[in-house]
């Protein structure tokens, strides 16, 4: 087994544990490369079936191509897709000009909390990776959130030998992180190996491409001539710029992500 085989096998094991041991389960699907890999792994884990709904938290500020792509793919694969927006916040004029972290909290964190409550999810599968940023590097594979969606990050329970947290009070939920051990290059090498269809925003046009996808006002492109998967993998091997450098909310505060994630951000 090479390292992609090992990562794949471990992720499938995690998805199957979540499906067996947690009650109502949903998978966050952001249209980006990581959640697209996650969707692929779910198909493998359940032999072509997807036995839970997919959730897209739509901030209404997403890059327009992402929404078009979302609708196309979910139709093609006939996904059970839940699209949710924090309508009330939008109605009250929420946007990045109110402050990036305030906006993220309202349109992503709060919106996510609304979905969890509405559908009574006990497990949320999320495609975060340890190498993305510091607070994610400290995550458990099965990570508990309390009734207010809070993450008690300074007192996480032991997690060992693939015996994950499957006992918790009713009303709490578990964030399941099957991609925690993958890094950015692993994701791209896997997409290449498995020939997984992907949104074309990642590929360079006019000397620019997106390295990470998010909301249009807060997500910048990087300078790049990478127009193929091979190009992207080659580019990443030599870059010294971090993956989320183009994500403005991360730069707002030294501990921006920790603060957002403590309150339930993905």
């Amino acid at each position: 087994m090479n390292h992609l085989d090992q990562l794949e096998a471990q992720s499938i094991f995690i998805l199957r544990e979540a499906y067996k041991k947690l009650g109502k389960l949903g998978m966050l699907w952001s249209i980006g490369k990581d959640s697209t890999v996650l969707l692929w792994l779910a198909k493998k884990a359940f032999f072509g079936h997807c036995p839970f709904p997919f959730i897209h938290v739509d901030t209404t500020y997403k890059i327009p191509e992402m929404i078009a792509y979302r609708d196309k793919v979910s139709k093609e694969l006939s996904l059970d897709l839940i699209v949710h927006t924090n309508e009330e916040a939008i109605k009250n004029g929420m946007g990045p000009e109110q402050g990036r972290l305030v906006c993220c909290k309202a349109l992503k964190t709060d919106a996510l909390q609304q979905v969890v409550k509405k559908y009574e999810f006990e497990g949320l599968i999320v495609g975060v990776r340890r190498d993305e940023e510091g607070s994610r590097s400290k995550e458990r594979v099965f990570s508990e959130r309390n009734k207010e969606d809070k993450w008690d990050y300074s007192n996480q329970p032991p997690e060992m030998w693939d015996q994950f947290k499957t006992d918790f009070p009713k009303g709490n939920h578990i964030r399941v992180h099957p991609l925690l051990a993958w890094n950015e290059i692993d994701i791209w090498e896997y997409i290449r190996r498995e020939n997984i269809p992907l949104i074309d925003l990642y590929f360079a046009r006019n000397g620019e491409r997106y390295r990470s996808l998010g909301c249009a006002p807060c997500t910048g492109k990087i300078k790049s001539n990478a127009t193929t998967l091979d190009d992207i993998i080659e580019e990443l091997k030599t870059t010294t710029v971090s993956e989320r450098a183009g994500r403005a909310q991360d730069q707002e505060d030294s501990y921006a992500m920790q603060k957002l994630r403590k309150d339930g951000y993905m």
Partner: peptide, 30 residues
Amino acid sequence: LLDAFEEEQKQGITIDTTQIQFQSQIRDYV
């Protein structure tokens, strides 16, 4: 570089475990 939590950096201690990757000439490390 590893003690990513605010509490860890301010107190200069490691609270929780983390994993980080790097490569040598012959293989990858976690």
